Amino acid sequence: MIVVMRRGATPQEVRQVEKRLRELGFATHPIVGVELTVIGAVGSRRDEVMEQVANLPGVERVVPVLRPYKLVAREVKEETTTIRVGDVVIGGPEVVVIAGPCAVESEVQLLTTAKAVKEAGAHLLRGGAFKPRTSPYSFQGLGLEGLKLLAQAREVTGLPVVTEVLDTRDVELVARYADVLQVGARNMQNFRLLQEVGQSGKPVLLKRGLAATVEEWLLAAEYIAATGNQQIILCERGIRTYENSLRNTLDISAVPLVKELSHLPIIVDPSHATGNQRMVLPLARAAVAAGADGLMIEVHPDPARALSDGPQSLTPAQFSRLMGELRRVALAVGRHSLPQVSLSCQAR
C-alpha cells in the first residue's frame, strides 16, 4: 500500500508513520516528490491496518497497490522519477543519449569514440569491460583494464560512464569506476545481482530480458527498488519473437505502456534491438516520438574491425547525422532539443 502524506507534513510526522508501519510488519520506502511525500509500505495488506495508518497525524490517505510491483508503480509517484548522473538528468524534458562502443577494445579505439560522441552531443559514454557473449570463444572484454580505460575516457571528455556488471562478485569493482551500473538482458532475472547493484547506491540501467513481459521487467526493477535504491533506468532493447529478419523485435509500444504503469524513466537501445546499423536511425526516431527519455546507441570508429557487434555500430559520422535527426524529432514532440553539434562535427 501507499501512504500519501499531507502537503506540509513535518519530517517528524513522516518518521512516526514509518515507525508505526514497521511495528505493523511493513517494510517502508519513503519517496519524496516535488509536492508530496509518499511512503511505500510492503507487507500483508489488511483493511484494519489501513484504517489505523490513515488516522495517523500527517496522513492524507492510504492507497492500496494492486499490481504485483509496488515501489516502481505509477500509483506511488505521479511525476516521472528523474535521475541525476553528474550534470545529466534522465527522465526530464531533455532526451538523453548514451553512446559508445559495444566493447572496450583499446585505448585508441575508446578515446577516439568518446571524443567523437562527445563532440556530436552525447550525454553519457557506454562501453563494455565485461562482455556476456553467446559463444564462450568470443571476445569477453578487457575486464579491469577496460574499466580503467573507461575512467580515463571520462577524465578526458567529462562524459559519465555506463558499463555492464555480470557477476555479484564484480559489483564493488565496477562501481568504483562506473557512474551507472548496467544489468544486461541476460541477467534481468538474476535476482541476487539485482539486489547487489541496488545496494551499491549507484544508478542502475536495467535492460529488458530476451523474452520478458513488461510485468516481469518491472518486477525485476522492484528487486532493485526494494533495496532502497530508486535510481533505476529501464531500457527496452528488443525481445525475441518468431520474426527472424532482424536480431530482435523492438517493442516501441513498451515506451508509452511503461510510462503508464511506472514512474521510472525509460530509454531505448535500437542498436541491440535490430543488430543492423541501417535500422538504428529510423527506430531511434520512433523511440523519441513515442516518448522515450533517452537512447543508447553503439558507435565504433571502424565497425568492420569491431570485436563485438560491428554490424549494428554506427561510425562517428553516422552518429553525428543521427543526432541532427533526433533534434528535429525531439522538438516536434515537445521535448527539449539535444545539444547543438559543432560545425566541424557536422562536416565529417
Rank of each mutant, 00 (worst) to 15 (best):
L331D: 12
S253L: 13
E236N: 05
E222A: 04
Y177W: 13
Q12P: 00
W217V: 11
S271A: 09
D269R: 04
I31S: 13
S135N: 02
A212G: 10
D302F: 07
E236P: 01
V38I: 06
W217D: 02
M50E: 15
R154G: 01
E48W: 15
E236K: 03
V65H: 14
N229L: 09
A116L: 04
G228L: 07
A116S: 09
G43T: 05
V76A: 15
E23C: 01
L71A: 09
E260F: 03
S135I: 00
G228Y: 05
R240Q: 11
R126C: 05
M188L: 08
P30S: 09
I31A: 14
L281K: 12
A211W: 02
T168G: 08
I31H: 14
A103L: 03
S44V: 15
R126I: 09
R348T: 12
E172W: 05
R15S: 12
V62G: 08
R305S: 11
V280S: 02
N190Y: 08
R240M: 10
E325H: 14
N276Y: 11
G92C: 04
V255R: 10
A175S: 13
T241Y: 08
R327T: 13
H123C: 12
Q12L: 15
R348A: 11
G91D: 08
V161R: 05
A9G: 11
I2R: 14
Q346M: 13
G184H: 02
V32G: 00
P270D: 01
P301C: 02
L149G: 04
P303D: 05
H263F: 12
E13K: 09
E196C: 02
V76T: 14
V156K: 09
V204H: 13
G238Q: 09
I224L: 00
R22E: 15
T213N: 06
P160C: 11
T112F: 00
L71N: 09
D167K: 06
E145Q: 14
I31W: 15
E94I: 08
A73C: 14
